[in-house]
Design a protein around this nucleic acid. Structure first.
Lengths: 146, 146
DNA sequence: AAGTAATCCTATTTATTTAGTATGATTTTA
DNA sequence: TAAAATCATACTAAATAAATAGGATTACTT
């Protein structure tokens, strides 16, 4: 029922990147330090984000990561689905017969599908830019992304 | 990210009870058999449901379980919260300071809270009676609850 | 050209949670 | 009194999650 640390760390790291990178590469150890996350573990998370096309990497000294798209183009849903797989509270396939199977289908279409749809809809309605704006507001420090 | 078997089994068992009990006690082994669930495991699930006030039990031979309320009064949300705890994808408390903490609050209020709210809203909008109706429709066998 | 700072890759370990099993006690009906 | 059921709890096994570790590769800098 809970989103794992991978998803939570990853979303937070993406927000960190959006707030602090200003188009330049940011090394993982900077993010890891700011966010108090194990650098080794963050590497695994960024490997997923990179393969999903959400961040770009530059290897070598002075390398690091940048967002692959504008913050306004990236939704929370895209990030979470990349890290956690389909945003779904249940995904049983069910192709049997009988009472058990009929109830499983009934629950799938009346309960799980609507819950899954609403989660995805909310997650897709929030962009990384929305988070950046909110964060800057909270911090009352509109110094980033001038 | 997934609802555990406890929640899934429990919801299915509640639907089974609503469909098949017609106000009489139903023994766990009947449900376990119909739904293909380990009886021992179902016992644990029903222990939770009983303590949550969702079912009533009668001990001894010819005993069993009945719903504690009318199916129209019980929502999917009530059942799932009883079995799974708060329906929330994240619940970190966070009372620190600094960038890390500010981002955690930002994500909590902009992402997790809205997702949690929408899940609960959907789950609370579906009653057990809705599921019974849908199940009977699917089965085209309006023979229960005459 | 060498050294260094970074990503990249993947194996291993540890901890936690989930799922299921087992057993015996208690209660009530027949 | 026997049988059928809930009740309670302890235990085990499997799966998943979280973190750690270490080396390979790449590219910048001096």
């Amino acid at each position: 029922m809970k989103i794992s640390t991978r998803g939570r760390y990853g979303l937070r790291a993406m927000l960190d990147l959006a707030v602090f990178s200003r188009g330049e590469h940011v090394a993982l150890n900077a993010i890891a330090e700011r966010q108090n996350i194990s650098e080794n573990y963050l590497e695994q998370v960024f490997s997923i984000l990179r393969k999903a096309g959400l961040v770009r990497s530059v290897k070598g000294a002075q390398g690091g990561y940048t967002l692959a798209m504008e913050p306004a183009q990236v939704t929370v849903g895209m990030i979470l689905r990349a890290l956690e797989g389909e945003l779904a509270v249940v995904d049983e396939e069910n192709s049997g017969e009988g009472v058990e199977s009929a109830m499983l289908s009934c629950l799938q279409s009346n309960v799980w599908d609507p819950i899954n749809a609403s989660m995805n809809q909310v997650a897709d309605s929030i962009s990384l830019q929305d988070l950046v704006d909110s964060f800057n507001n909270i911090n009352e420090a509109p110094m980033y992304y001038i």
